[in-house]
Design a protein around this nucleic acid. Structure first.
Length: 466
RNA sequence: GGCGCGGUAGCCAAGUGGUAAGGCCGAGGUCUGCAAAACCUCUAUGCGUCGGUUCGAUUCCGACCCGCGCCUCCA
Protein backbone atom coordinates (compact mmCIF):
# COMPACT_ATOMS: atom_id res chain seq x y z
CA UNK A 1 0.00 0.00 0.00
CA UNK A 2 1.37 3.35 -1.00
CA UNK A 3 2.23 6.24 1.27
CA UNK A 4 0.01 9.23 0.72
CA UNK A 5 1.22 12.53 2.02
CA UNK A 6 -0.06 16.06 1.86
CA UNK A 7 2.10 18.16 -0.41
CA UNK A 8 2.65 21.74 0.72
CA UNK A 9 3.37 22.96 -2.78
CA UNK A 10 0.46 21.47 -4.72
CA UNK A 11 -1.77 21.49 -1.68
CA UNK A 12 -3.20 18.09 -2.10
CA UNK A 13 -2.48 14.51 -1.18
CA UNK A 14 0.06 12.75 -3.35
CA UNK A 15 1.62 9.31 -3.43
CA UNK A 16 5.27 9.25 -2.44
CA UNK A 17 7.91 7.79 -4.69
CA UNK A 18 6.17 8.46 -7.96
CA UNK A 19 8.71 9.93 -10.29
CA UNK A 20 8.15 11.69 -13.57
CA UNK A 21 8.50 9.79 -16.86
CA UNK A 22 12.16 9.35 -17.73
CA UNK A 23 13.35 9.38 -14.15
CA UNK A 24 14.75 6.07 -12.90
CA UNK A 25 12.43 4.11 -10.61
CA UNK A 26 13.40 3.62 -7.00
CA UNK A 27 16.17 1.06 -6.60
CA UNK A 28 19.37 0.57 -4.67
CA UNK A 29 21.19 2.71 -7.20
CA UNK A 30 18.45 5.32 -7.19
CA UNK A 31 17.05 5.27 -3.66
CA UNK A 32 14.20 7.38 -2.43
CA UNK A 33 15.91 10.64 -1.50
CA UNK A 34 14.73 12.44 1.57
CA UNK A 35 16.10 15.71 2.93
CA UNK A 36 15.17 17.14 6.32
CA UNK A 37 16.23 20.54 7.59
CA UNK A 38 18.09 19.88 10.81
CA UNK A 39 18.85 21.93 13.88
CA UNK A 40 21.10 24.91 14.44
CA UNK A 41 23.64 23.75 16.98
CA UNK A 42 24.09 26.63 19.38
CA UNK A 43 21.78 25.65 22.25
CA UNK A 44 19.89 22.59 23.44
CA UNK A 45 17.19 21.46 21.06
CA UNK A 46 13.73 21.76 22.57
CA UNK A 47 10.78 19.45 22.24
CA UNK A 48 9.33 21.60 19.51
CA UNK A 49 12.37 20.88 17.40
CA UNK A 50 12.03 17.26 18.26
CA UNK A 51 8.44 17.11 17.19
CA UNK A 52 9.53 17.81 13.64
CA UNK A 53 12.42 15.38 13.78
CA UNK A 54 10.16 12.75 15.29
CA UNK A 55 7.58 13.13 12.56
CA UNK A 56 10.33 12.81 10.00
CA UNK A 57 11.65 9.77 11.78
CA UNK A 58 8.31 8.02 11.46
CA UNK A 59 8.28 8.99 7.82
CA UNK A 60 11.78 7.57 7.38
CA UNK A 61 10.72 4.30 9.02
CA UNK A 62 7.64 4.11 6.87
CA UNK A 63 9.70 4.71 3.75
CA UNK A 64 12.01 1.86 4.72
CA UNK A 65 9.06 -0.47 5.16
CA UNK A 66 7.64 0.69 1.85
CA UNK A 67 10.67 0.72 -0.40
CA UNK A 68 13.21 -1.37 1.51
CA UNK A 69 15.83 -0.40 4.02
CA UNK A 70 18.54 -0.07 1.38
CA UNK A 71 16.40 2.01 -0.95
CA UNK A 72 15.98 5.08 1.18
CA UNK A 73 18.59 7.76 1.65
CA UNK A 74 17.92 10.27 4.38
CA UNK A 75 19.95 13.44 4.83
CA UNK A 76 19.51 15.82 7.72
CA UNK A 77 21.88 18.74 8.01
CA UNK A 78 23.40 20.56 10.94
CA UNK A 79 23.57 24.33 10.71
CA UNK A 80 26.86 25.15 12.33
CA UNK A 81 27.46 28.66 11.05
CA UNK A 82 24.94 31.50 11.15
CA UNK A 83 24.12 34.56 13.25
CA UNK A 84 23.12 32.51 16.24
CA UNK A 85 26.02 30.09 16.37
CA UNK A 86 28.47 32.92 15.87
CA UNK A 87 26.70 35.00 18.48
CA UNK A 88 26.86 32.18 21.00
CA UNK A 89 30.56 31.65 20.38
CA UNK A 90 31.16 35.32 20.88
CA UNK A 91 29.18 35.46 24.11
CA UNK A 92 31.12 32.53 25.51
CA UNK A 93 34.47 33.70 24.12
CA UNK A 94 35.05 30.28 22.62
CA UNK A 95 35.78 29.15 19.09
CA UNK A 96 32.73 28.53 16.91
CA UNK A 97 33.70 24.90 16.30
CA UNK A 98 33.83 24.21 20.01
CA UNK A 99 30.31 25.54 20.49
CA UNK A 100 28.85 23.63 17.61
CA UNK A 101 30.64 20.40 18.49
CA UNK A 102 29.31 20.55 22.02
CA UNK A 103 25.70 21.10 21.00
CA UNK A 104 25.92 18.54 18.24
CA UNK A 105 26.95 15.91 20.75
CA UNK A 106 24.06 16.77 23.01
CA UNK A 107 21.68 16.77 20.09
CA UNK A 108 22.78 13.28 19.14
CA UNK A 109 22.39 12.09 22.69
CA UNK A 110 18.81 13.37 22.75
CA UNK A 111 18.05 11.86 19.35
CA UNK A 112 19.24 8.48 20.57
CA UNK A 113 17.15 8.77 23.71
CA UNK A 114 14.09 9.47 21.59
CA UNK A 115 14.90 6.50 19.38
CA UNK A 116 15.39 8.56 16.22
CA UNK A 117 17.11 6.70 13.42
CA UNK A 118 20.32 8.40 12.45
CA UNK A 119 20.15 9.95 9.02
CA UNK A 120 22.45 8.35 6.48
CA UNK A 121 24.29 11.59 6.04
CA UNK A 122 24.40 14.49 8.47
CA UNK A 123 26.32 17.19 6.65
CA UNK A 124 27.42 20.46 8.18
CA UNK A 125 27.43 23.85 6.55
CA UNK A 126 31.07 24.54 7.41
CA UNK A 127 32.25 21.39 5.67
CA UNK A 128 30.42 22.38 2.50
CA UNK A 129 31.65 25.92 1.97
CA UNK A 130 33.13 25.00 -1.39
CA UNK A 131 29.86 23.56 -2.66
CA UNK A 132 27.96 26.62 -1.51
CA UNK A 133 30.41 29.01 -3.11
CA UNK A 134 30.19 27.03 -6.33
CA UNK A 135 26.44 27.38 -6.43
CA UNK A 136 26.60 31.08 -5.69
CA UNK A 137 29.03 31.58 -8.54
CA UNK A 138 26.71 29.79 -10.92
CA UNK A 139 23.83 31.96 -9.76
CA UNK A 140 25.89 35.10 -10.28
CA UNK A 141 26.91 33.99 -13.76
CA UNK A 142 23.32 33.24 -14.67
CA UNK A 143 22.15 36.63 -13.45
CA UNK A 144 20.14 35.33 -10.52
CA UNK A 145 22.44 36.90 -7.97
CA UNK A 146 24.32 40.15 -7.59
CA UNK A 147 27.10 41.60 -5.51
CA UNK A 148 26.10 44.26 -3.03
CA UNK A 149 28.33 47.27 -2.30
CA UNK A 150 29.71 45.65 0.85
CA UNK A 151 30.79 42.50 -0.97
CA UNK A 152 27.81 40.38 0.08
CA UNK A 153 25.88 38.47 -2.54
CA UNK A 154 22.10 38.51 -2.80
CA UNK A 155 19.66 36.40 -4.69
CA UNK A 156 17.46 38.45 -6.97
CA UNK A 157 13.95 37.13 -6.54
CA UNK A 158 12.79 39.14 -9.53
CA UNK A 159 14.83 36.77 -11.69
CA UNK A 160 12.76 33.78 -10.67
CA UNK A 161 9.14 34.10 -11.78
CA UNK A 162 8.01 31.15 -9.70
CA UNK A 163 9.19 32.75 -6.50
CA UNK A 164 6.42 32.56 -3.91
CA UNK A 165 4.75 29.43 -5.26
CA UNK A 166 5.33 27.47 -2.08
CA UNK A 167 4.38 30.13 0.46
CA UNK A 168 1.97 31.94 -1.85
CA UNK A 169 3.73 35.15 -1.20
CA UNK A 170 3.73 37.18 -4.34
CA UNK A 171 4.63 40.57 -3.05
CA UNK A 172 6.18 41.78 0.10
CA UNK A 173 3.52 43.19 2.32
CA UNK A 174 3.65 46.65 3.76
CA UNK A 175 3.90 45.47 7.31
CA UNK A 176 7.03 43.56 6.49
CA UNK A 177 8.91 46.19 4.62
CA UNK A 178 8.74 48.53 7.57
CA UNK A 179 10.55 46.12 9.82
CA UNK A 180 13.29 45.31 7.38
CA UNK A 181 14.72 48.75 6.85
CA UNK A 182 18.05 47.57 8.25
CA UNK A 183 19.03 45.79 5.11
CA UNK A 184 20.45 48.59 3.06
CA UNK A 185 22.31 46.65 0.45
CA UNK A 186 19.49 44.90 -1.32
CA UNK A 187 17.92 45.95 -4.56
CA UNK A 188 14.59 44.61 -3.41
CA UNK A 189 13.34 43.84 0.11
CA UNK A 190 12.55 40.31 -0.95
CA UNK A 191 16.08 39.57 -2.05
CA UNK A 192 17.96 37.38 0.38
CA UNK A 193 21.60 36.83 1.23
CA UNK A 194 23.53 34.03 -0.42
CA UNK A 195 26.82 35.22 0.96
CA UNK A 196 27.42 37.63 3.84
CA UNK A 197 30.48 39.81 3.79
CA UNK A 198 32.69 39.57 6.82
CA UNK A 199 32.02 42.06 9.62
CA UNK A 200 34.92 42.17 12.09
CA UNK A 201 32.85 43.50 14.97
CA UNK A 202 30.31 40.69 14.67
CA UNK A 203 31.94 37.70 13.09
CA UNK A 204 35.13 37.24 15.12
CA UNK A 205 37.40 34.92 13.20
CA UNK A 206 34.64 33.26 11.20
CA UNK A 207 35.23 33.79 7.50
CA UNK A 208 36.05 32.04 4.27
CA UNK A 209 37.15 33.28 0.87
CA UNK A 210 34.01 34.30 -0.98
CA UNK A 211 32.69 33.58 -4.44
CA UNK A 212 34.58 35.21 -7.27
CA UNK A 213 33.84 38.90 -7.22
CA UNK A 214 32.55 38.90 -3.64
CA UNK A 215 34.20 39.68 -0.32
CA UNK A 216 35.38 37.14 2.20
CA UNK A 217 32.68 36.12 4.63
CA UNK A 218 30.29 33.28 5.22
CA UNK A 219 27.34 31.67 3.49
CA UNK A 220 23.82 32.87 4.01
CA UNK A 221 21.59 30.39 5.74
CA UNK A 222 19.47 29.11 2.88
CA UNK A 223 22.21 28.12 0.49
CA UNK A 224 23.56 25.34 2.68
CA UNK A 225 20.52 23.13 2.21
CA UNK A 226 20.56 23.65 -1.54
CA UNK A 227 24.24 22.79 -1.73
CA UNK A 228 24.18 19.84 0.61
CA UNK A 229 21.09 18.22 -0.83
CA UNK A 230 22.59 18.61 -4.29
CA UNK A 231 25.83 17.02 -3.24
CA UNK A 232 24.41 14.10 -1.29
CA UNK A 233 21.09 13.48 -3.00
CA UNK A 234 21.34 15.01 -6.45
CA UNK A 235 19.63 17.87 -8.25
CA UNK A 236 16.12 16.54 -7.81
CA UNK A 237 15.11 14.90 -4.56
CA UNK A 238 12.00 12.90 -3.79
CA UNK A 239 10.98 14.58 -0.57
CA UNK A 240 11.96 17.64 1.38
CA UNK A 241 10.56 18.24 4.83
CA UNK A 242 10.74 20.55 7.79
CA UNK A 243 8.67 22.59 10.19
CA UNK A 244 6.03 24.98 8.85
CA UNK A 245 8.05 27.93 9.97
CA UNK A 246 10.67 27.02 7.39
CA UNK A 247 8.16 27.16 4.59
CA UNK A 248 8.87 30.83 4.25
CA UNK A 249 11.41 32.08 3.64
CA UNK A 250 13.78 29.14 3.96
CA UNK A 251 12.23 26.60 1.65
CA UNK A 252 10.98 29.19 -0.77
CA UNK A 253 14.55 30.40 -1.07
CA UNK A 254 15.96 26.92 -1.42
CA UNK A 255 13.66 26.31 -4.36
CA UNK A 256 14.74 29.56 -5.99
CA UNK A 257 18.45 28.87 -5.54
CA UNK A 258 18.41 25.24 -6.55
CA UNK A 259 16.12 25.54 -9.52
CA UNK A 260 17.91 28.57 -10.92
CA UNK A 261 21.27 26.92 -10.43
CA UNK A 262 20.43 23.41 -11.59
CA UNK A 263 17.66 24.12 -14.04
CA UNK A 264 15.66 21.21 -12.67
CA UNK A 265 12.87 20.61 -10.16
CA UNK A 266 14.32 20.82 -6.68
CA UNK A 267 12.00 18.51 -4.80
CA UNK A 268 9.17 16.32 -6.03
CA UNK A 269 7.35 16.53 -2.75
CA UNK A 270 7.22 18.98 0.15
CA UNK A 271 6.05 18.11 3.62
CA UNK A 272 5.71 20.41 6.60
CA UNK A 273 4.86 19.52 10.14
CA UNK A 274 3.01 21.95 12.34
CA UNK A 275 4.16 23.73 15.45
CA UNK A 276 4.18 22.43 18.93
CA UNK A 277 2.48 24.71 21.42
CA UNK A 278 3.09 24.58 25.13
CA UNK A 279 0.17 25.52 27.34
CA UNK A 280 -1.51 27.00 24.31
CA UNK A 281 1.32 29.25 23.23
CA UNK A 282 4.30 28.98 21.01
CA UNK A 283 7.34 28.01 23.00
CA UNK A 284 9.71 30.78 23.81
CA UNK A 285 12.28 31.59 26.40
CA UNK A 286 10.48 34.77 27.38
CA UNK A 287 7.28 32.88 28.15
CA UNK A 288 9.25 30.37 30.16
CA UNK A 289 7.52 27.46 28.48
CA UNK A 290 10.44 26.07 26.57
CA UNK A 291 11.24 22.48 27.45
CA UNK A 292 14.32 20.51 26.61
CA UNK A 293 14.61 16.77 26.95
CA UNK A 294 16.73 17.25 30.06
CA UNK A 295 14.06 19.44 31.64
CA UNK A 296 11.48 16.72 31.21
CA UNK A 297 13.80 13.90 32.24
CA UNK A 298 14.51 15.84 35.43
CA UNK A 299 10.78 15.79 36.09
CA UNK A 300 10.85 12.03 35.83
CA UNK A 301 9.43 11.58 32.35
CA UNK A 302 10.92 8.98 30.07
CA UNK A 303 12.03 9.86 26.54
CA UNK A 304 9.65 7.20 25.21
CA UNK A 305 6.72 8.96 26.86
CA UNK A 306 7.87 12.18 25.28
CA UNK A 307 8.01 10.44 21.94
CA UNK A 308 4.53 9.07 22.46
CA UNK A 309 3.14 12.43 23.52
CA UNK A 310 4.63 14.14 20.50
CA UNK A 311 3.08 11.56 18.21
CA UNK A 312 -0.33 11.80 19.82
CA UNK A 313 -1.34 14.70 17.63
CA UNK A 314 -1.60 14.84 13.87
CA UNK A 315 1.70 16.10 12.43
CA UNK A 316 0.00 18.75 10.33
CA UNK A 317 -2.00 20.10 13.21
CA UNK A 318 -0.73 22.23 16.03
CA UNK A 319 -0.21 20.12 19.11
CA UNK A 320 -0.63 21.55 22.55
CA UNK A 321 1.94 19.98 24.78
CA UNK A 322 1.34 19.81 28.51
CA UNK A 323 2.82 17.95 31.41
CA UNK A 324 -0.52 16.25 31.73
CA UNK A 325 -0.22 14.84 28.24
CA UNK A 326 3.10 13.40 29.32
CA UNK A 327 1.51 11.65 32.27
CA UNK A 328 -1.07 10.19 29.93
CA UNK A 329 1.70 9.06 27.58
CA UNK A 330 3.59 7.41 30.39
CA UNK A 331 0.52 5.40 31.39
CA UNK A 332 -0.30 4.50 27.82
CA UNK A 333 3.20 3.17 27.23
CA UNK A 334 3.06 1.09 30.38
CA UNK A 335 -0.18 -0.44 29.15
CA UNK A 336 1.32 -1.23 25.77
CA UNK A 337 4.36 -2.82 27.36
CA UNK A 338 2.12 -5.01 29.45
CA UNK A 339 0.06 -6.01 26.43
CA UNK A 340 3.19 -6.80 24.49
CA UNK A 341 4.57 -8.95 27.30
CA UNK A 342 1.29 -10.79 27.62
CA UNK A 343 1.27 -11.57 23.96
CA UNK A 344 4.58 -13.36 24.20
CA UNK A 345 3.17 -15.82 26.71
CA UNK A 346 -0.46 -16.41 25.81
CA UNK A 347 -0.01 -17.93 22.41
CA UNK A 348 -1.15 -21.55 22.80
CA UNK A 349 -4.86 -21.33 22.26
CA UNK A 350 -4.76 -18.27 20.07
CA UNK A 351 -7.04 -18.18 17.06
CA UNK A 352 -5.60 -18.44 13.59
CA UNK A 353 -3.44 -15.62 12.35
CA UNK A 354 -4.51 -12.28 13.60
CA UNK A 355 -1.61 -10.31 12.26
CA UNK A 356 -3.94 -8.41 9.98
CA UNK A 357 -5.41 -6.64 12.96
CA UNK A 358 -2.23 -4.59 13.13
CA UNK A 359 -2.67 -3.52 9.53
CA UNK A 360 -4.70 -0.45 10.45
CA UNK A 361 -1.72 0.90 12.36
CA UNK A 362 0.47 1.07 9.29
CA UNK A 363 -2.48 2.01 7.12
CA UNK A 364 -3.10 5.06 9.29
CA UNK A 365 0.51 6.10 9.05
CA UNK A 366 0.56 5.61 5.32
CA UNK A 367 -2.39 7.94 5.10
CA UNK A 368 -0.70 11.27 5.64
CA UNK A 369 1.18 10.12 8.70
CA UNK A 370 -1.87 9.96 10.90
CA UNK A 371 -0.03 8.99 14.06
CA UNK A 372 -2.90 9.55 16.50
CA UNK A 373 -5.11 7.25 14.48
CA UNK A 374 -2.24 4.76 14.34
CA UNK A 375 -1.90 4.80 18.12
CA UNK A 376 -5.62 4.23 18.45
CA UNK A 377 -5.41 1.31 16.06
CA UNK A 378 -2.49 -0.09 18.02
CA UNK A 379 -4.54 -0.25 21.19
CA UNK A 380 -7.45 -1.85 19.42
CA UNK A 381 -5.11 -4.49 18.02
CA UNK A 382 -3.50 -5.27 21.35
CA UNK A 383 -6.84 -5.51 23.13
CA UNK A 384 -8.13 -8.03 20.65
CA UNK A 385 -6.82 -10.95 22.68
CA UNK A 386 -3.90 -13.35 22.57
CA UNK A 387 -1.91 -14.00 19.49
CA UNK A 388 0.42 -16.51 17.89
CA UNK A 389 4.19 -16.11 17.75
CA UNK A 390 4.10 -15.03 14.15
CA UNK A 391 1.67 -12.29 14.95
CA UNK A 392 4.16 -10.67 17.21
CA UNK A 393 6.15 -9.60 14.17
CA UNK A 394 3.17 -7.61 13.01
CA UNK A 395 2.99 -5.94 16.39
CA UNK A 396 6.69 -5.22 16.30
CA UNK A 397 6.50 -3.86 12.79
CA UNK A 398 3.87 -1.42 13.99
CA UNK A 399 6.03 -0.46 16.93
CA UNK A 400 9.00 -0.03 14.64
CA UNK A 401 7.09 2.33 12.38
CA UNK A 402 6.10 4.45 15.35
CA UNK A 403 9.56 4.10 16.81
CA UNK A 404 8.20 3.01 20.16
CA UNK A 405 10.77 1.01 22.07
CA UNK A 406 8.82 -0.68 24.83
CA UNK A 407 11.92 -2.21 26.33
CA UNK A 408 13.23 1.18 27.27
CA UNK A 409 12.93 1.32 31.02
CA UNK A 410 11.18 4.23 32.62
CA UNK A 411 13.27 6.64 34.55
CA UNK A 412 13.83 5.54 38.13
CA UNK A 413 14.14 8.19 40.74
CA UNK A 414 15.87 6.95 43.84
CA UNK A 415 14.47 7.96 47.18
CA UNK A 416 16.50 9.93 49.70
CA UNK A 417 17.98 8.06 52.68
CA UNK A 418 15.39 9.17 55.21
CA UNK A 419 12.59 7.94 52.97
CA UNK A 420 14.32 4.60 52.55
CA UNK A 421 14.64 4.34 56.31
CA UNK A 422 10.92 4.98 56.76
CA UNK A 423 10.12 2.39 54.14
CA UNK A 424 12.37 -0.14 55.80
CA UNK A 425 10.63 0.42 59.13
CA UNK A 426 7.25 -0.03 57.54
CA UNK A 427 8.30 -3.22 55.83
CA UNK A 428 9.48 -4.62 59.16
CA UNK A 429 6.24 -3.60 60.84
CA UNK A 430 4.26 -5.20 58.08
CA UNK A 431 6.21 -8.44 58.32
CA UNK A 432 5.45 -8.44 62.05
CA UNK A 433 1.79 -7.95 61.13
CA UNK A 434 1.74 -4.67 63.03
CA UNK A 435 -0.60 -3.15 60.49
CA UNK A 436 -1.45 -0.09 62.54
CA UNK A 437 2.20 0.94 62.56
CA UNK A 438 2.60 0.00 58.92
CA UNK A 439 -0.34 2.15 57.89
CA UNK A 440 0.91 5.07 59.92
CA UNK A 441 4.27 4.84 58.19
CA UNK A 442 2.60 4.64 54.79
CA UNK A 443 0.85 7.88 55.61
CA UNK A 444 4.12 9.46 56.63
CA UNK A 445 5.69 8.40 53.36
CA UNK A 446 2.77 9.75 51.39
CA UNK A 447 3.01 13.05 53.20
CA UNK A 448 6.66 13.20 52.17
CA UNK A 449 5.63 12.59 48.55
CA UNK A 450 6.43 8.90 48.18
CA UNK A 451 4.29 5.89 47.65
CA UNK A 452 5.39 2.44 48.67
CA UNK A 453 4.44 -0.39 46.37
CA UNK A 454 4.43 -3.70 48.16
CA UNK A 455 5.50 -6.80 46.32
CA UNK A 456 5.62 -10.38 47.47
CA UNK A 457 9.20 -10.32 48.67
CA UNK A 458 10.02 -6.65 48.66
CA UNK A 459 8.81 -3.22 47.78
CA UNK A 460 9.41 -0.32 45.46
CA UNK A 461 9.39 3.37 46.17
CA UNK A 462 8.23 5.92 43.71
CA UNK A 463 7.19 9.55 43.83
CA UNK A 464 3.47 10.04 44.38
CA UNK A 465 1.77 10.49 41.04
CA UNK A 466 -0.14 13.66 40.56
C1' G B 1 -3.23 44.04 6.23
C1' G B 2 -1.69 39.19 3.53
C1' C B 3 -1.27 33.77 3.97
C1' G B 4 -2.63 29.43 6.75
C1' C B 5 -4.54 26.17 10.75
C1' G B 6 -7.91 24.83 14.43
C1' G B 7 -12.51 24.77 17.87
C1' U B 8 -15.29 16.83 19.09
C1' A B 9 -16.61 14.16 26.42
C1' G B 10 -12.92 16.37 32.81
C1' C B 11 -8.04 16.33 29.65
C1' C B 12 -5.61 14.67 24.94
C1' A B 13 -7.33 13.08 20.21
C1' A B 14 -9.12 10.26 15.38
C1' G B 15 -13.18 10.25 12.19
C1' U B 16 -17.56 9.96 8.87
C1' G B 17 -23.47 12.65 4.59
C1' G B 18 -26.90 8.11 8.00
C1' U B 19 -26.35 9.06 13.32
C1' A B 20 -19.41 9.57 17.51
C1' A B 21 -12.06 5.22 17.26
C1' G B 22 -8.48 5.29 20.87
C1' G B 23 -5.58 7.04 25.14
C1' C B 24 -5.46 9.48 30.03
C1' C B 25 -8.22 10.70 34.27
C1' G B 26 -12.57 9.37 37.10
C1' A B 27 -16.50 5.89 39.08
C1' G B 28 -18.19 0.88 40.40
C1' G B 29 -16.68 -4.24 40.85
C1' U B 30 -13.08 -8.69 41.35
C1' C B 31 -8.50 -9.60 43.77
C1' U B 32 -5.42 -8.08 47.95
C1' G B 33 -4.04 -6.98 55.67
C1' C B 34 -4.01 -1.51 53.75
C1' A B 35 -2.12 0.91 49.35
C1' A B 36 -0.55 -0.03 44.39
C1' A B 37 -0.77 -3.14 40.19
C1' A B 38 -3.74 -6.35 37.27
C1' C B 39 -8.55 -7.80 35.36
C1' C B 40 -14.05 -6.62 34.30
C1' U B 41 -17.80 -2.79 33.63
C1' C B 42 -19.32 2.30 33.03
C1' U B 43 -18.36 7.50 31.28
C1' A B 44 -20.48 12.83 24.50
C1' U B 45 -28.83 12.01 22.32
C1' G B 46 -23.87 15.19 20.84
C1' C B 47 -19.02 17.25 17.75
C1' G B 48 -17.89 26.60 18.77
C1' U B 49 -22.72 29.73 17.41
C1' C B 50 -26.57 30.84 13.89
C1' G B 51 -28.57 29.97 9.23
C1' G B 52 -28.77 27.02 4.43
C1' U B 53 -28.60 22.47 1.20
C1' U B 54 -30.44 17.33 2.17
C1' C B 55 -34.95 12.12 3.49
C1' G B 56 -30.92 12.86 6.98
C1' A B 57 -24.99 17.02 8.84
C1' U B 58 -20.72 16.70 13.69
C1' U B 59 -19.28 15.67 8.57
C1' C B 60 -21.15 20.01 2.56
C1' C B 61 -22.15 25.64 1.92
C1' G B 62 -22.51 30.71 4.11
C1' A B 63 -22.07 34.15 8.07
C1' C B 64 -20.37 35.00 12.82
C1' C B 65 -17.59 34.14 17.57
C1' C B 66 -13.13 32.27 19.83
C1' G B 67 -8.02 30.37 19.79
C1' C B 68 -3.23 29.66 17.32
C1' G B 69 0.74 30.12 13.71
C1' C B 70 3.70 32.39 9.63
C1' C B 71 4.82 37.08 6.98
C1' U B 72 13.51 37.53 6.22
C1' C B 73 16.96 33.95 9.04
C1' C B 74 12.28 30.28 14.62
C1' A B 75 11.39 22.80 13.91
Amino acid sequence: MAIRLFDSLTRDYRILGQREPGAPPISQEHPFTFYTCGPTVYAPAHIGNFRTFLVNDVLRRLLELEFGKDRVKHVRNLTDVDDRTIGQAKREHRPLSEITRHWTELFHRDCDALNLLRPHVEPTATSHIREQVDMIEVLMRKGNAYRAPDGSVYFKIGSFPEYGALSRIRERELKVTITVADDDHKDDVGDFALWKAYKPEEDGDVQWPGPTGAAAGRPGWHIECSAMSKKHLGNTIDLHSGGVDLLFPHHENEIAQSQCCNGTTFSRHWYHSEFLLVDGKKMSKSLGNLYTLDDLKAKGFSPMAIRYALLSGHPRKQLNFTLESLHAAESAIATLSLDRARMTTFTKDAPASLSSRFDPVLASLRDDLNSPAALGALFIATKAGPTKPGDLSAFDRALFALGLDLSASPIQISAPAEICALAERRWTAKKAKDYAAADALRKELAAAGWSMLDGKDGYKLEPVKK
